[in-house]
């Protein structure tokens, strides 16, 4: 199940898998685009960490989430149920990280 985040991604332009036209979709990136901002917060590479969605129970690497960046902050959503997994808001003074959409985040123990 650990690959489920990265196997269900639709085309980045938001078109349906069957190619039918849809209303314009905000583009999203894969979660690896969050590697830089997250590296500033954590010493481990979180994009390889396996997160479990609190909403639907799907698990997958953080690098496989749907990352919405055309927004006032970064928003990572579950590719299974589209619920919000994490948000990252940064001002010049403070960084606000919410991980409340994960029940757990699993990554190799350091050392």
């Amino acid at each position: 199940m650990t690959d489920s985040f990265s196997t269900s991604l639709p085309a980045p332009d938001g078109s349906a898998p069957d190619g039918t036209a849809t209303v314009p979709e905000p583009a999203f990136l894969d979660g690896n685009a969050a590697a830089g901002p997250l590296r500033e917060l954590f010493t481990v590479d979180l994009t390889a960490a396996v997160g479990t969605c609190a909403s639907c129970g799907d698990a997958g690497p953080l690098g496989g989430v749907r990352l919405f960046t055309q927004a006032p902050g970064l928003v990572g959503r579950c590719p299974g149920c589209e619920d919000v997994l994490f948000t990252l808001v940064r001002s010049e003074r403070d960084t606000y990280l919410s991980m409340k959409g994960f029940t757990t985040l699993r990554f190799p123990t350091a050392g």
Partner: peptide, 8 residues
Amino acid sequence: PVLSAGPT
């Protein structure tokens, strides 16, 4: 500009 925290 179109800003959105998720799918439309």
